[in-house]
Design a protein around this nucleic acid. Sequence first.
RNA 1: GUCCCCGUCGUCCAGUGGUCUAGGAUACCGGGCUUUCAAUCCGGCGACGGGGGUUCGAAUCCCCCCGGGGACACCA
Length: 559
Amino acid sequence: MTVLRVVLRHDVGARGRDAFHFTDLLGHDVVKLRHREARREFLELEVGDDVVVAKNGIHPLHMRFRADDLRNLSFRGAATADQHVCRNWHECAPFGSFLRAMVAVRSGSGKVPWALHPVSVQCPTMDPVRVRFAPSPTGYLHVGGGRTALFNWLYARHHGGTFILRIEDTDRTRSTGEAIEQIFASLRWLGLDWDEVYRQTDRFDRHREVAADLVRQGAAYESDGAVWFRVPPHGVTTIPDLLAGDVTVQHTELKDYVILRSDTTPTYNFACVVDDHDMGITHVIRGAEHLNNSPKQLLIYHVLGWSPPQFAHVPLILGPDRSKLSKRHGAGSVLDYDERGILPEALVNFLARLGWSHGDQEVFSREELVALFDLPGVNTSAAVFDDEKLLWLNHEWLRRLEPHRLGELLAERIVVRGVADRAAVKDIGREKLARAAVLLRERGRTLVEMADRARPYLPGSVELSADAQDLCTPELRSALREVAMRTEALRDPSAQEFEIVLRRAADELGLPMKSLAPAVRVAVSGARVGPGLYDLLAVIGPEIVAARLRTAAGGEKKG
RNA sequence: GUCCCCGUCGUCCAGUGGUCUAGGAUACCGGGCUUUCAAUCCGGCGACGGGGGUUCGAAUCCCCCCGGGGACACCA
């Protein structure tokens, strides 16, 4: 048994929102401190001698304090249970079974000073986290689904839990095998590996069996060939959502709904409950569009006597028009981003930051995300997908990649984009590819942009635009010939050596670098803009440089 | 229409009653550096939806309004 100690230091701050609670992962034996007058600065939690969390901690166990449960606490002190503290979630150490806390309390609503009192809370031993991503294979996986998958995956990995992939293919008319393959490919590309995978269609017998139980006990009935769940006519159902807080729905708002279609296949709201239960799901992390389904599902848990998982409905991703991101917003498929030359590292980073944050940090590696991600950092408002920022992040990640790996990605892309064939790419070698990639990535935001500008680094000639040709006056042409000659004398020159050669040539020919440099650049690369000239020349190599200089100097249209 | 959720710069976030003349990022606009572009550095533009409360004090708590979104299927 681990003893945790929560110390409330000082009393500052209030946040009278139901959305902020302390809860354990299973929702068992939880305690909520009334947050009305909640005040506190931070919690300090300890496991044994190790302090495991302070403000904005990153720990796996969310303690939830409920006002009602406070009465069950043993107070060492004179406090009564209906005055207290604390809002905000916080986490305790992993797998604690006992919690001792110091809570700030006061015995009146007036200006009675706060006092610290110790409390003890019995916590159940935590079951390991089991979460699932449950896409419906009716189309490609778009970024909204990708983010839901990511959040689930991160949550599982952060807590050392299990990430389950469940294909929700109960709608046999709309589900396709192709879509399933797409989903697998998308998750693989994002780097979200799953520990278990299920197909709902494989479990129809089980669904029918549970439906029959429901009918037998009168909780469901058959009508017109379908089986309907009977919603209690009165009362309310409250979903304790980890993000939205308690969401209460009147039963009068709900209608009886179909759980088994007339073809005996189960529907979503039913199959989902049976499977989540059977698979031992501890946390249902899904898009906010499902919030309204939760009461229906909770009702089934109740009549079956099953304990429900914890729910966390994550905010939606919106398109530029502020409606839920969907296929009609264009490039929504996860794999489209691959095609656009976006790195999975960048998309993962971007998606994580849409609705989740860790202070002001913007760039996160996968490892950092696993270490830092947790539900308390997730916010509740919908976010607009901003392509510009994605591009910026992609550039950041391009610049962080190991050069040789980037070179390989570039090579692939060069071939795909038809900039050169595989043989030409192979010809320049791994080393040069990496060096070229390093130059290219400074001015390209995607692999596609890089590949499309890679021509100068590949063997063969470059095409000079008419505009570029104009740069080469007769005077410069002879200068280019001179530079070509001097270049040929070089053996594997570095950028510095190229600089010396050019400067000396310019000097001796009485030409300012301002006119020689652009001419050389255009002659060698075909473009007026690009990387630092000497770096460019060094990567391309003296042979090709000299050849291209001579071609340009010769005045032919094609080099 | 009904119910539910949400509401800080154009966009993404920080902010958990005083440290906020509101911070970071992106985008945009100037300037420096440079053979170009990029990177980088410096500077700038730019937000607490509105109204009432509570409080000595509110971006933060409460209420109303407004706005946005989502859900109301034998889709998931």
